[in-house]
Design a protein around this nucleic acid. Structure first.
Lengths: 132, 132
DNA sequence: CTTTATCTCGTACAATTGAACTAGTTCGCG
DNA sequence: CGCGAACTAGTTCAATTGTACGAGATAAAG
């Protein structure tokens, strides 16, 4: 076990991870530029957080000349799903449904996302229509 | 502002909140009984966390005789949705879709949940079918 | 080769968090 | 009323987190 038992992310670490996931050029300089623009974090702070994220196993480093490229170990989707699982475990299913409604109503989904999701739900409905 | 600007929950505070939301009898004793059963937390620790949650504004107290009843200020759904928003803000929408797929595939939804969600998606599809 | 700009890394330090002990108050029972 | 049980609230303490400085290494420029 504990293969994907990555240590839990703190608030500031999430911010850095989100930048790392979305950025093209993953040098510390570029990442800190983004974290400053998006969250007002200073350069030194970002570098410290990058180091801690490496220690925690969320980021791996690729040595390049003087420094590193910082590459995420898990995808954003996987990490967010894991966080959601932790949030939703042993809570009554109602929360999951309401959360999904909320996301839909927040416009988090594109038109094609909605279609895909409908298709997925269709397949589940077939299997479950004689249950609940 | 800052009406619903409740301070962010820590790991252990989430656990206590989840118990508080789900439990019937909200005396400290009953809550700590649950946190012990579910998470192995000791009685004193739970009471400390309850106190901090009151300080942070997530729980309000109702004096009853010797002690309090601990009542959540926001519903579980609202709090989880807020957490999800924070998690998903300024990330490309892809994460939201994948997260929803994940939850569906994890069986978080009942048959009737799925039907309701389908109905919701239908209404959105009508409005967006000529977009992307 | 020397200077200079960048990096990483160790360290620092206050605030927060996880966990727990204790003192002092109040309830319930005899 | 008096005693023990249960409760809250204040305090403690180590670990983690948020933020940041400075040292030493290395690349690039002259």
């Amino acid at each position: 076990m504990s293969k994907n038992e990555l240590k839990v992310l703190s608030q500031a670490e999430w911010k850095v991870m989100k930048v790392v996931w979305n950025i093209q050029s993953r040098a510390a300089r570029d990442i800190s530029e983004q974290t400053k623009a998006q969250y007002g974090m200073t350069d030194v702070t970002t570098r410290t957080l990058l180091r801690r994220l490496v220690e925690k196993g969320h980021i791996k480093t690729i040595p390049v000349g003087n420094s590193y490229l910082y590459e995420p170990v898990s995808s954003m989707v996987d990490t967010i799903c894991a966080a959601a699982d932790e949030l939703l475990d042993n809570t009554p299913g109602r929360a999951a449904k309401s959360l999904m409604f909320h996301m839909v109503n927040q416009g988090k989904l594109s038109g094609s996302d909605i279609q895909e999701l409908r298709t997925l739900l269709d397949s589940y409905e077939e299997n479950q229509e004689d249950e609940g």
